[in-house]
Write a protein that binds this DNA or RNA. Structure first.
Lengths: 222, 222
DNA sequence: ACAAAAGTGTTTGCTCTACACCCATGT
DNA sequence: ACATGGGTGTAGAGCAAACACTTTTGT
C-alpha cells in the first residue's frame, strides 16, 4: 500500500490569498493542476517527507516554515495507479523573494485560492477536497492562534498583519479595532522598536511574532 | 508499508471520562494495554476500517456513533514489526447498555482517561501520544460543536449534558448559567416535550440533539 | 495644503458571571 | 417539612463594534 504526502502551500501576495500548484508532467492526470507531493521513503518520517517536498518546490529552507498535518485520505480508487493513501500537510509561507525556485519551476504557479475553490474540476485526484479542508483549517486557526504571522516577513506592521486576515478570510476589518486587538492580545506581537513608512502615510511601528501559541481572546471572523 | 487504524473510543460513565483499552494478547507488547485497532484491508476505506473495528470492540451498530479522524502517525520505528503508519480515529459513544460486548470482551476495559494520561508508560507503541492528541481534540470540540450530545442517550436532561462537560473538562460548571446557555444556543438542543425525574428533585425537561453543527457562541472552558 | 495611513478615546450595547430566588418532585 | 435538583431574574463587570478625532509622514 503506497503512502504519500501532499502539500497545500499557502501564501498571501499583494492582498491575494494563493496556493502553490504544479502542472503534472506525467500520467495519471498529465497536464492537469495538482498539489505538490510525493511518496514517503522507507526510512523517512511523514513530516520529513513533507519538508523535503516543500523545500523542493519552494527552494526555501523549510525549518523556518510553519507546517502541520491536516488529514489523511485513503479512499480506494482515489489514485488510478493503485492503492495510495495520502497524508495532507498545510504549509504557510511568507511572500517569497524568489517566486518559485523549485526544481521544476516552469510548471509551478501561485493561483488564487478562491479561483481554485470555485472550480471543483480544476485539480487532479481528490485534491480539490484536500485543498478545501486545508483552507478551512487555515481560516479557523487564524482566529485562535498567532499563525497569521507565518504569512508575514520577520518584521511587519499591524496593517500588514491585518491584510493577511482580510485576504484569508475575505472580509474587511476595522483598522482601528484590529490594531487595538492585535497589540493588546498577550503574546501575539512584540514591538521591534523601529518604524517604517513602506505602507505610506504616518510611519508604522514594526512588530515581530510573539511567544503565544494560542490567542486569548481569539480574533473573530466578521 | 502497512497502514492501520487505531481507535480512541471515549465515553462518560457515572461522571467519569473513560477510554476503551484492550490488553494485547499477542506480541509485540504482549500483555500491555493498547488502543484497539487493526490493519486496513485492500478494498476498504480508512473510515470503514475504523467503523469495523469499532463495531468489533463495542458490539454497537456503528452507524449512529460519532467518528472522526484525528491524525496519522508514521515515525519509522513506532512499530517493531516494521514500517506501519497508523491513522487515529476518535469515537464518542454514550454509556453503553452492554459494557463491552466485543469479540474479545475479557481483555477490553473502560479506564479513566485521567489515570492513563498521568502514566505515560502505560500504553504500548506511541498510543499515549495518540490518546493525548485525541482527548485534546475532544475537549476542544465540546466548546464550539454540539458533540457533547454524542456522549448522551437519545433523550437527555440539561444536567446530564452538563455532567458530560464537567467530566470531560474536569471542571465544575454553574448549573444555572449552563442551563441558559445550552437551551438558548441556536440548534444545540431541542425540547422533546416530556420530563423525567431520574436525576431526582424537580422533574427535568428532556431534550434531543439539535441540528446545529457549530455553536454560536461557543461554551467556554472554566 | 492635502491625502493617506497610524494610532487613541469614547459611546453604546451586549454577554458573561455570580448569586438571589422560586418551582416541583420524592421521602 | 425538608432535601434535591430544575429553572428564571437581575445587578455589575467586562468586552467589542462603531466611529469621532488626533498624529505623522509623502507629495
Amino acid at each position: 500500500m503506497g503512502v504519500a504526502c501532499d502539500l497545500v502551500i499557502l501564501t498571501v501576495r499583494d492582498g491575494s490569498f494563493e496556493v502553490l500548484l504544479i502542472r503534472r508532467g506525467i500520467a495519471p492526470h498529465r497536464g492537469r493542476w495538482a498539489l505538490p507531493g510525493g511518496f514517503v521513503r522507507p526510512a523517512e518520517d511523514l513530516e520529513q517527507t513533507a519538508r523535503r517536498e516543500l523545500a523542493e518546490e519552494t527552494g526555501v529552507d523549510s525549518d523556518r516554515i510553519h507546517l502541520e498535518q491536516v488529514a489523511t485520505y485513503g479512499e480506494p480508487g482515489r489514485d488510478p495507479r493503485g492503492r495510495v493513501i495520502s497524508v495532507a500537510y498545510l504549509a504557510l509561507v511568507p511572500d517569497l523573494p524568489v517566486p518559485v525556485a523549485g526544481s521544476d519551476a516552469a510548471s509551478a504557479s501561485w493561483i488564487p485560492v478562491a479561483d481554485v475553490l470555485a472550480d471543483p474540476g480544476r485539480l487532479a485526484f481528490d485534491h480539490h477536497r484536500i485543498l478545501a479542508d486545508a483552507v478551512e483549517r487555515a481560516r479557523a486557526k487564524l482566529e485562535y492562534s498567532p499563525l497569521a504571522t507565518a504569512f508575514c516577513a520577520d518584521e511587519f506592521t499591524i496593517s500588514e498583519l491585518r491584510g493577511v486576515y482580510e485576504a484569508v478570510w475575505g472580509v474587511a476589518l476595522d483598522p482601528r479595532n484590529f490594531h487595538r486587538k492585535a497589540t493588546r492580545t498577550e503574546g501575539f506581537v512584540e514591538p521591534v522598536g523601529a518604524t517604517t513608512t513602506r505602507d505610506g502615510g504616518r510611519p508604522a511601528q514594526l512588530f515581530r511574532r510573539g511567544a503565544a501559541t494560542t490567542l486569548h481572546p481569539p480574533l473573530t471572523r466578521a
